[in-house]
Design a binder for these strands. Structure first.
Lengths: 277, 277
DNA sequence: GGCGGCGATACCGCACGGGTATCGCCGCTG
DNA sequence: CAGCGGCGATACCCGTGCGGTATCGCCGCC
């Protein structure tokens, strides 16, 4: 299945084999073997191009999920085994620079629980937490609706907050008591920044590229961009930035999420602590 | 992993090997190999007993999920491949004898969709739908809250209904306009029936054993038991049975559920049709 | 028409998974 | 208390399957 996913992603046997660290002929054979076993044509190969069939597209999605599941099984077992001295405990994934105060209160509340174990913090990029939960690098995560997907995860809502626009201090708009999203997206000279997608490439557009919040805030301070963020980001804002509420931006709900079949005592305690803060 | 799950369930290498159709020594080696690779002790073996360690318990849960995922990948791919003439289409799992009218309306509504494919109906026993969704035998299912679990599935609520008690016609209680759950569970000579669990064995207790609804209704008609069911079951009731509302029984919500990463057009259309009926 | 890129085929060798025989440990029993 | 029996571990052997190299066949392109 790993082999098939590699070929389906590359659509090229040679490159896929290289990526897998094997030679091309065994890969061809393995795929053909898989097709025989499933009784389904997965790929249409001409001598110039490889394409997915419908069944192949189904398998690609399902196989990714399956591979994540076995990877998760291995990782979580390793983590559980290392937990003997109680050291690494539970892995919590959260967006770097988001919900700072909430996170601090959550960790405090959990630490006060009777049988609390150490919490391993995983600071993720945009939308990375979901993947970490799925492949077992994390046991529990803080997500932000509606930006993160929670499909297939159990969740508990923690808090909902409005959004603000982050501007350079002294920008004309900072005198206003509130602004509309439409205004923000049309600010002359302040196009919204572009973030890298999961594959690391940036979408096209007018805004500057930003890879993390430090870069972003620097760009805002320099008057090159602006940004709409949950209002709790004001806790950790630089002095040279200002915020204005944006009432018509969608409210952001912070939720705590965990894989649905998790029965870990630590995760349960963490969720319990979270719902109390 | 299959090997480990077998041993963890049997807690006995010999029986597990037999179940797997292999000899015991290779199984011992395979498990030890897995422990080495994960760097974790999974089982504590004395010469008289085998027990799971904490890490082993984690792996058991995760491995079951992973094995379900790969099985689901294979099954769904096979199904997608067979779908070429449009014949088998999408597999819908539902409890036999529940929500009959709703199901009929749902199928009608879906059949009216522009690109509807054939729906393969899977009639399940109690609580079997969840497993079918997880291991890929079904693509979508009708579940009944609060009896079925929906953890890890995407769902859409369809309808909520109260429950009634099903009694033999002419039973004294049938004169009443409603009864309480407490009364039902204490009816002299009418103990609630016992259903087989997922492993096929019956729990202990006074009630008669029932394997399906036909048996159950027969037993009720014979005055050997009674049963609490959603009120929609009255649509398909035999003439020799009667029902009385039980207002304090938990209301039953019928939901349509599907695996969260499903992107199938057919499943989406089915859900859309379901929300409209 | 020849070249080059790419997947398929042919063939080989080795490592790993599975089988049988046997051991070592320990709890039960007469 | 000694002998038996059940159970997991170990030792050793064998065949299959996976991976590697060499080569072919097809086709688009210069």
């Amino acid at each position: 299945m790993r082999y098939f996913v590699a070929v389906a992603e590359e659509l090229h046997f040679g490159r896929a084999a290289q990526r897998l660290g094997i030679a091309q002929p065994p890969l061809s054979r393995a795929i053909r073997h898989l097709e025989r076993r499933l009784g389904a044509a997965l790929l249409t190969r001409t001598s110039r191009a490889v394409a997915l069939t419908d069944a192949g597209a189904v398998l690609l999605r399902e196989a990714r999920a399956a591979l994540d599941a076995v990877e998760a099984a291995e990782r979580r077992t390793r983590r559980a085994a290392r937990a003997a001295p109680g050291r690494p405990g539970v892995a919590l994934a959260t967006k770097a620079g988001a919900s700072g105060a909430l996170l601090a209160r959550l960790l405090d509340a959990y630490a006060a629980e009777p049988d609390a174990v150490a919490v391993d913090l995983l600071l993720c990029g945009i939308g990375e937490q979901e993947r970490m939960l799925r492949d077992g690098r994390a046991d529990v995560a803080l997500l932000h609706l509606p930006y993160d997907g929670t499909a297939g995860l159990d969740t508990e809502e923690l808090c909902t907050e409005g959004q603000v626009v982050v501007l350079p201090a002294g920008h004309p708009l900072t005198d206003r008591s509130e602004v509309q999203t439409a205004e923000v997206s049309e600010l002359p000279g302040l196009p919204l920044p572009r973030w890298p997608g999961p594959d690391g490439s940036y979408p096209d557009g007018p805004g500057p590229q930003a890879r993390d919040h430090t870069q972003l805030f620097q760009l805002i301070a320099l008057g090159r961009t602006c940004w709409i963020a949950p209002e709790s980001c004001r806790d950790q804002l630089r002095e040279d930035l200002a915020t204005v509420p944006v009432p018509d931006a969608p409210p952001v709900t912070t939720v705590i999420a965990w894989p649905p079949h998790s029965r870990s005592r630590a995760v349960a305690a963490l969720v319990r602590a979270a719902t109390r803060v």
